[in-house]
Amino acid sequence: MMDYLVGHYAYFFTVLIMCLGLYGLMFKKNLVKKVIGLSILQVAVILFYVSLASKWGATVPVKWAEVPVTEVAAYLNPLPHTLMLTAIVVGVATQGVAFALMIAIWNRYKTLDEDDLLDRISEDTP
């Protein structure tokens, strides 16, 4: 039981962060808070991948002269690191587009609240 907890506690924390992000994404009415929830969800996924890549007693995936590369247990798994490197940049691009859409919404309807926004859209369209 103790070994199980020591080996799995990082996953529990990523699940907690993911639930926090999903709560912000679904139940908050303000669009800015929704985007913050989306980024928290993305951070949870990134932390999950990076924690999967870890090995006890291993070093970073940069070749070191004293450790030969044939000992794969001495280096971390480089594949999740690479995937998350691209995922972070795509997340920044997503947030940029989301904020641009919010600036356009504010200029047209002067609100960012979800219910007010739906009311004003239904007022505009006959």
Binding site: V89, F99, A104
Partner: peptide, 16 residues
């Protein structure tokens, strides 16, 4: 990446 980030800031600072 550098140019896209500067572009994001410029467009958001000037607004629509």
């Amino acid at each position: 990446v550098m140019m896209v980030m500067i572009l994001l800031y410029d467009k958001m600072a000037t607004g629509e």
